[in-house]
Design a protein around this nucleic acid. Structure first.
Lengths: 239, 239
DNA sequence: AAGTACGAAATCGTATACGATCAAGTTTGC
DNA sequence: GCAAACTTGATCGTATACGATTTCGTACTT
């Protein structure tokens, strides 16, 4: 990243520290469980502890790290329950955002989404999950970014960030689900082209995400420690 | 000066500063537009500027104040557009929370809600809008607090906080709407007693909030500066 | 008289220092 | 040998100080 940040560094040090730490978490340099020590971070990043502390508190608010008083911060880990909560919440807010976007979507938007979906199918054939995940975000972005309510849009972005923080692309991988997803994308586009009502769009968008979650839950049900998730599984399907 | 850290005081100073400032905003001591100067706040509260700054940043994240670099924080004001965004977002997340709570609700929950609703009707007869607003939160809390997804519940709480920060109880007052609201509450309770499905509960909960928003929009449409809100009005009804 | 340049006051942003608190390892008493 | 109390090391929490930035008033120019 950084794309040649010119000599005049933009933003306050708190903001730069936030961005830097966030990148290192998402980039995998700081793996879940890694302890983020203020003094060490400040040393590494070249800042003082105060802006680093502010960055950490912000990352805590966005659930990238957990924070314990007088103990410190650790990178948030992969937790099946958290994954379920996040996916369910995202199914709700993203469904709403997509429905609110639908009336404003243009033909060229749909064309672009269709091109992205084609690229997804291709990346699937080449076994490139990284690219697939990136394209998946791009596809859905086209569908929800026209949402005229910035609060809802913000919640959607937070949800996607959280999924990234959970490393869901490798975490929730379920064989066969990816190709299903591509097919559902095409169905979604057809629905939008047909000028369907907001309710139908919302339902379809929710169902799409719920299907991914269900696939994950179904796989885990066959696994070993299935008690806690089974108990909450109905939540995934109820909406 | 903090030579004797009295054990009665709990939480870090940042947290206490946050709580104190938040109370003063909600209590009306700091009205919208009021400039929150770090040094002055620190003086008033008896803390140093660092924890106060942290508190301010947190309040900013929750939209209680707006913050501008090198300028400072001001208490967020009443903005019809923000009100619309907040109500619409709340209709979505609260609708979902209520629907997810519905299967877990007990008979005594419903009895309590009904009692609260009776008190609302009474406070309406005595022209006590403060009490009415407080009871309204209590009523809805009974309906959504069983939501097993803490992320969604958190979003609902943020929405209600935001409404408080906007002072919606006086801001959005529409004659006649309050009594309608009480009637809709009873209908909601009957729906829950009938064991309706999650979809129906969600729709009803959304419609209840959308009706309040609609009443506000309808009143404002007859007002003076109606252009910007009219443009966004369809959003309110679409979900 | 209006607009601009400049300077002083106000305020935020961050560095540094030190006290407070917690976890863990070590000693002591039984 | 084991448990409880103590010591120690690491880390956070906050106060204070100072530099950076913006704002606003004032004088100067046109």
């Amino acid at each position: 990243m950084s794309s040649t940040t010119v000599s005049t560094e933009i933003g306050s040090k708190s903001e730069r520290a936030y961005a830097a730490i966030r990148e290192k978490i998402l980039g995998g340099e700081y793996t879940p469980g890694y302890r983020l020590v203020l003094a060490k971070l400040a040393e590494d990043l070249g800042f003082s502890v105060v802006p680093v502390r502010e960055a950490i508190r912000r990352l805590e608010a966005e659930s990238f790290v957990t924070f314990e008083r007088n103990v410190g911060a650790t990178v948030a880990g992969i937790d099946p329950t958290e994954y379920l909560y996040t996916m369910q919440t995202l199914s709700i807010v993203e469904g709403a955002a997509t429905a609110l976007s639908a009336p404003l979507i243009t033909g060229s938007d749909i064309a672009r989404a269709r091109a992205v979906n084609a690229a997804m199918r291709e990346s699937l054939a080449h076994f490139d999950p990284i690219r697939f995940t990136a394209l998946n975000l791009e596809f859905h972005s086209v569908l929800f970014e026209n949402c005229p309510n910035p609060h809802i849009l913000d919640l959607v972005h937070r949800g996607w960030n959280r999924l990234q923080a959970l490393r869901s692309s490798t975490f929730n991988y379920v064989p066969g689900r990816a190709s299903e997803s591509v097919a559902e994308h095409e169905a979604l586009l057809k629905l939008l082209e047909s000028g369907a009502g907001a309710d139908d769009v919302e339902r379809a968008a929710r169902a799409h995400r719920a299907a991914t979650l269900d696939a994950y839950l179904a796989r885990n049900a066959g696994g070993q420690q299935d008690a806690p998730l089974h108990e909450k599984a109905p939540l995934a399907r109820s909406l």
